[in-house]
Design a protein around this nucleic acid. Structure first.
Lengths: 158, 158
DNA sequence: GTCGCTGCAAAGTCTTTGCAGAGAG
DNA sequence: CTCTCTGCAAAGACTTTGCAGCGAC
């Protein structure tokens, strides 16, 4: 049975931890903790969506209009976060990438081609099988992603 | 002992069939069969690689220098072929997409992040599991793709 | 104070589009 | 002949970079 991974409690504590790790990461690399970086991390954290850089930028501008965060900073921060494995990017058929916080457990994606909704899932058996395959080929897996495309239940009913 | 001649014939027959289907597809949509479109299809067919539009364009220019096929035509033809499900595109972390003929059997991809090499594989158990999952969720799967990223055996040895 | 960060705008990529002439049916 | 295609170049979309001033430490 697929496990659908939606169960996160104690949001505040979790975010504090994430933020703390992020500050530590910055310190370790002689980077600075800035308001912009914090807002980007927080916005990613509070979004359940998979965000494009542009969408993230819009959210931030709406939330912190005074800050005038530039799109370039969003890109730079996302690149930094991706390098540090704090966020993961997905790229679909269309142009551009979408980002999500990678602090969550690993999961795969079901993508509805009708409404664009993305559902996450994890299946232990598939995960295990992937390891078996890479082990057999001498391939050192660092990451993997799986997308299943189709039409979700709701859209079929329409 | 393998019969070389038979192999050759099989290949030729296979390509002829592909070409025939393509012509039919064009006719059905009131589109024209042009030299450029044929060369693009043929080059895709003869390549075992996953090609970027640019790589495909280079191959074509090398093979048919007189034709001066424009990159725009390559993009237009790939879009046409993708719409018609003759080719499939993959997109990775990096910019851009790679295309492959979709006439082949379905398969997943192992991608080396060092050298960019793509290895194909199919695993019946994973395929089955994917169906189980979508069935359980009432999701009507039309397609799926899986990519495993990591470092291939050769690159590890370097 | 130092050195990394930021916003801005300009420059890069990759892809798409408009157009006038070429070519398939 | 008609109507689609093509190559070219220009335009678009998305992302990265250079720079001068700003701000974290």
């Amino acid at each position: 049975m697929p496990d659908i991974n939606t169960n996160f409690n104690d949001k505040t504590v979790e975010y504090e931890q994430l933020l703390k790790d992020f500050k530590q990461l910055l310190k370790k690399n002689n980077l600075k903790f800035t308001i912009q970086r914090e807002v980007i991390l927080e916005t990613l954290y509070n979004s359940d969506e998979h965000l494009t850089p542009e969408a993230l930028h819009h959210l931030i501008q709406a939330k912190q209009p005074d800050l005038k965060t530039g799109i370039a900073t969003v890109y730079r921060t996302l690149a930094l976060l991706e390098d540090s494995n704090v966020v993961t990017s997905l790229s679909f058929g269309a142009q551009g990438k979408k980002y999500e916080l990678g602090a969550k457990e690993h999961h795969d994606h079901l993508i509805c081609t009708e409404c664009g909704k993305i559902t996450e899932f994890v299946d232990a058996e598939i995960e295990k099988r992937q390891h078996d395959i890479t082990d057999a080929l001498g391939f050192k897996m660092s990451d993997h992603s799986m997308q299943i495309y189709g039409i979700c239940k709701e859209c079929q009913e329409k």
